[in-house]
């Protein structure tokens, strides 16, 4: 579960003298961008409004998580629109979005920013664009499988799967919390399952899975 630590969370400050760095071009030339990326995401996040963003930054200001992000929501929108596909899909921002919709209700252009973030998450998961042990896509996948299997989610089992797949040691760290929940009757290992599983699976399977691949 090694996440790239965003600058805001870094607690140590290095005092070593600045060293000569290799010179890297930090901007991309237009030929290196994926120019259709913005259109593609806009289509999957309800309308072309994304493309009409005026870059006012209200989303970044209202976002309670923006100061932990590597790119603020405003930047993510600009980069998506301009076709910085790799940077956007590799960013921590899309995983930090907790879907609180603060940006969506404030946006003067009525861009569904939370839905844009969901679209980017789907894109990144479908294309395997995330740090190997990033717990959020792992959690999303485990959740998907569990609901596909039982129709309901059993929280305790979901969390055990999450820790086994990301960082088993974390389970030990969380053991006391789990025990406390168990003792207060708030955690049960009993599997929750629905009766109409067959019917539900038939319905879900009839929906064509979305092809998230960007035309390259």
């Amino acid at each position: 579960m090694k996440l790239p630590t965003p600058p805001a969370l870094r607690t140590t400050v290095t005092n070593s003298p600045p060293r000569m760095k290799t010179v890297v071009r930090r901007l991309k030339f237009e030929s290196e961008l994926d120019l259709s990326f913005g259109e593609h995401v806009a289509e999957r996040a309800y309308g072309q409004k994304l493309l009409s963003c005026i870059q006012c930054g209200t989303c970044s200001a209202t976002c309670p998580l923006s100061h932990y992000m590597d790119y603020t929501p405003r930047k993510i929108i600009a980069m998506t629109r301009e076709g910085f596909k790799d940077e956007v899909l590799n960013s921590l921002t899309i995983w930090l979005c907790a879907s609180c919709y603060a940006c969506t209700v404030q946006c003067p252009r009525q861009i569904h920013i939370t839905d844009v973030m969901y679209a980017l998450k789907r894109e990144a998961i479908a294309r395997g664009f995330y740090p190997a042990r990033n717990p959020i896509p792992v959690l999303a996948k485990a959740f998907y499988e569990r609901v596909r299997h039982d129709g309901r989610n059993t929280e305790s089992r979901l969390l055990i799967t999450l820790y086994l797949r990301t960082n088993p040691f974390k389970m030990l760290k969380e053991a006391m919390l789990g025990l406390h929940l168990f003792l207060t009757g708030r955690l049960s290992l009993k599997k929750e399952k629905i009766k109409g599983m067959k019917e539900l699976r038939k319905m879900i399977d009839s929906v064509e899975p979305r092809k998230e691949a960007v035309p390259l």
Partner: peptide, 16 residues
């Protein structure tokens, strides 16, 4: 016989 609503995780995999 209600089923899980899907929460915020399911929509990160497949929206429809």
């Amino acid at each position: 016989d209600w089923n899980c609503c899907g929460a915020t995780a399911y929509v990160s995999i497949d929206e429809n």
